[in-house]
Write a protein that binds this DNA or RNA. Structure first.
Lengths: 336, 336
DNA sequence: CTGAAAGCGCTTACAG
DNA sequence: CTGAAAGCGCTTACAG
């Protein structure tokens, strides 16, 4: 049997109102009374009931987070930053995965209603109709996923800038034919960034190599295809694919970066320690999360939504040879 | 203004009781009435209030999960498996970090009371007094962390078995002096497993090299120390440290495994694609999570707690040379 | 098959 | 500074 405020109040010889005031803040209480209530609560191991509180206050401290698919560093780093920032804002994080169908998603969000008042999407299915979520009494925020409408808050990663920079770096390092190994969901401007860099340098040839997945195994599997293309520079949509290719190149006696320069995307830690250390593009994780949490914190301006784009940042390491002078091989300069 | 059951009932011209029966299951309702209620609910976009429901039913569908520190693959793989299994069991996952003090932890769990009835710890501070959590109306389950008392359910990783196997494999491959690079929290039997293997082979010498951290940078930093020790085999408490050492060895012209055989712990994906691919020890992640979720699912046997130990599993790859025959370099045999 | 009523445990005006 | 009462939105016996 749960210990309620009423029981504590009886024990302390005061009214429920007074006990509540002492234990959950609010209103003035005389020192002696307060002490008596506190002692009674401790003696009985009183534990307030969050469900009742939420019901009464029509508010709660929980934010739902729909996590991305997959199991790689970026996703988890983002989730961890989110959880930390939400906690600092006094919020708890309720974890969910994006269901396979729109109906399941709506059912899930319905279940969350009453204890979560915000949902942050870090995953989205472009086949879903985002507008249908507007009827739910829960505010949706999109992080690095575009629902295709500005009726939601959107904090989007602008990949084109970083990709353009990395391709230009490959070209500066001497690459004359550049391959782009692009995943199916090659989103957020990776293709645009690549194409824009190539257009800027008419003498450079380019080839796009589509990939079904974005994992180590995919980069490894496409190794033959990449080498056959005759490219002397290659950009992968993920660091994982790039490191899978490292393995393939090694097994086939191809030297990186002497024979082919390599770059990835995501700034995963293993790339910084790979041999050679992997050039990559870093996400604006902190900035995006900060904006999302800001919406949660001052979430009262109903109807007004915000769309912001955050640029990505090039990190050049040994896998792109810089002609200035030979880089001392050490991972300490990686910026991680 | 929220649409309540009462409003839907009015709209449909029935009582609250009947509307509830239609929309949330339970009791028999005539087909025509049910249809009328459903239409009204759809028209009004009725959304049930979870807080009210939880309050009334004195139950909820949320399980708290205290995540581990750090930001590496193992932690996130475990969390992901947990979230998936809990969801399959009809539960939502509430994420939290382990606070710095016992008081903060207790305050946090108090806040969770009323919407979470279980907490799964995948992180723990040995300085905390676990017994004090018993007074909270929330059941605690420990995963791969030992609170030091069998008053809680505990599902623990038995690291000694896997470490013993990996050391014996290093010895079989020809290593005569083996270094153990051990993190501060070298827990769960890593030291015992190492020592037991060494004791079994009196001719083999051993050296323990303590490390403050368990990251890439720590393995890199200790490279000089390891080489100076004269070891021709080295076991790291984490794959990350091992891969950091790869980098150091490369920079100093040391060949792996010809000059020094290497093994790690955790079975991170990058190790499977490293050059040479890294031998390691895999965690019993699925098994542990399954048991924890089982407790949540049939969580009524109050007072009776369970302690189970799960063995770890050796994965030999190229970083330990096997004298049978030269291994074809390909990451496909890695068992990932 | 359906309705009127009580109550989950808390908070919030409203009186005194 | 303190108390009696209403009510958040749902579910659960209890009648009919």
């Amino acid at each position: 049997m749960a210990i309620t405020l009423k029981i504590v109040a009886n024990e302390a010889g005061v009214s429920v109102r007074t006990a509540g005031r002492v234990l959950r803040g609010g209103g003035p209480v005389s020192g002696v009374t307060a002490e008596r209530v506190r002692k009674a609560a401790a003696r009985l191991s009183y534990v307030p009931n969050a469900a009742a509180r939420n019901l009464r206050r029509r508010s709660c401290r929980i934010v739902g987070v729909i996590t991305s698919d997959g199991n790689h560093e970026l996703i988890h780093t983002r989730l961890r930053i989110l959880e930390r920032c939400l906690r600092e804002a006094g919020r708890d994080t309720l974890l969910g995965s994006l269901p396979g169908t729109q109906e399941e998603l709506e059912r899930m969000l319905l279940e969350w209603t009453g204890f979560a008042d915000f949902v942050i999407f870090t995953n989205w299915n472009p086949d879903f109709c985002a507008e249908r979520l507007l009827k739910l009494p829960i505010r949706c925020i999109f992080l690095d996923r575009d629902p295709g409408t500005d009726k939601f808050d959107r904090f989007l990663t602008e990949r084109a800038s970083g990709v353009r920079e990395v391709i230009l770096a490959l070209i500066r390092s001497g690459a004359g034919k550049i391959a782009h190994v692009s995943g199916i969901g090659s989103s957020g401007g990776r293709i645009e960034g690549f194409d824009s860099a190539i257009r800027a340098k008419p003498k450079v040839r380019a080839v796009r190599i589509p990939s079904k997945g974005s994992e180590f195994a995919d980069g490894y599997r496409l190794g033959a295809r990449i080498l056959r293309s005759g490219a002397d520079g290659v950009f992968f949509d993920t660091d994982r694919m790039a490191l899978g290719f490292y393995r393939y190149a090694h097994e086939h006696g191809i030297r990186i970066p002497e024979q082919i320069a390599v770059a990835g995307f995501d700034n995963d830690t293993p790339g910084a320690y790979a041999i050679p250390s992997l050039s990559t593009v870093a996400h604006p994780l902190e900035e995006e999360v900060r904006e999302a949490v800001r919406i949660v914190t001052n979430g009262d301006r109903k109807g007004k939504t915000k769309t912001l784009y955050f640029p990505t940042k090039l990190i050049v390491r040994e896998s792109i040879p810089m002609n200035v002078k030979p880089i001392k091989p050490s991972p300490t300069f990686t910026g991680k």
